[in-house]
């Protein structure tokens, strides 16, 4: 197994690139979350704006990543960051907007109207209601959005190696350049493993953060 030999012989580099990959994705998801979750909550209060914001995020998603990197290059070059991690993270943050905003919006909009009504009726302010009812109930859906974003970002980060962002894409890019099959395979497999691992990890977080009352309901199939 030449592939395993490759990974074992280059374990230092494998670890380094994996760690670099994780750092880029984690930072991007973190940034995306603190932008998109509040935005998703905010637009639940205004249907008109919600439509526009969701459309914009939708359009962002349709731009191929290589094209997005190309588009950003001249702009970011002005501040000396046309290549490298900065454009990569910016692209990831932009791509993450749709799944996170959409899931936050849908999660909160899907809170049954009678619960909103009950919350209002017993005298909860809009903010209290958000904090005590709407967000807790939307948490599973919001985390599902983060999960989609994170897994997607792992894939896009692999491409970002072409603009010098580093990460496991480096193996793929250099492997192709050198026609070094094991290197390409190692990069691809490690990216895939990372994606599976992160997906499972996020699923766990989703389960942990789901309110207990909801979990019991799910178990009972209600």
């Amino acid at each position: 197994m030449k592939l395993i030999d490759f990974i074992l012989n280059n374990s230092d580099q494998c670890l380094f690139l994996t760690w670099e990959h994780i750092r880029i994705v984690a930072f991007a998801v973190f940034l995306a979350t603190i932008i998109a979750v509040p935005l998703g909550i905010l637009i639940t209060r205004n249907e008109g704006i919600a439509k526009k914001v969701l459309n914009a995020a939708n359009i962002l998603m349709t731009i191929p990543s290589i094209a997005l990197f190309g588009l950003m290059l001249p702009v970011l070059a002005l501040i000396g960051h046309g290549l490298g991690k900065v454009p990569a993270v910016i692209a990831l943050v932009l791509y993450s907007q749709l799944p996170i905003i959409r899931n936050t919006y849908v999660g909160i909009k899907n809170v049954p109207p009678e619960l909103v009504e009950a919350g209002k009726g017993v005298g909860m302010s809009s903010l209290t209601r958000l904090k005590e009812v709407e967000i807790p109930l939307a948490v599973p859906v919001i985390i599902a959005g983060l999960r989609t974003a994170a897994v997607m970002n792992i894939g896009i980060t692999a491409i970002a190696a072409y603009i010098g962002a580093g990460g496991l894409g480096v193996f793929i890019q250099q492997g192709i350049a050198r026609a070094y099959d094991e290197m390409v395979m190692a990069g691809a497999i490690l990216v895939a493993l990372l994606a599976i691992f992160v997906d499972a990890g996020m699923a766990l977080i989703e389960r942990i953060l789901t309110p207990r009352g909801i979990k019991i309901g799910r178990k009972q199939g209600r």
Partner: peptide, 22 residues
């Protein structure tokens, strides 16, 4: 209005218990 509602009990047909709360 928020204070007003706190001084009145309110119950609806759908009950509207918060499922995330005990």
């Amino acid at each position: 209005p928020v204070k007003l509602r706190q001084t009145m009990g309110y119950a609806i047909q759908e009950i509207g218990l918060f499922p995330n709360k005990s």
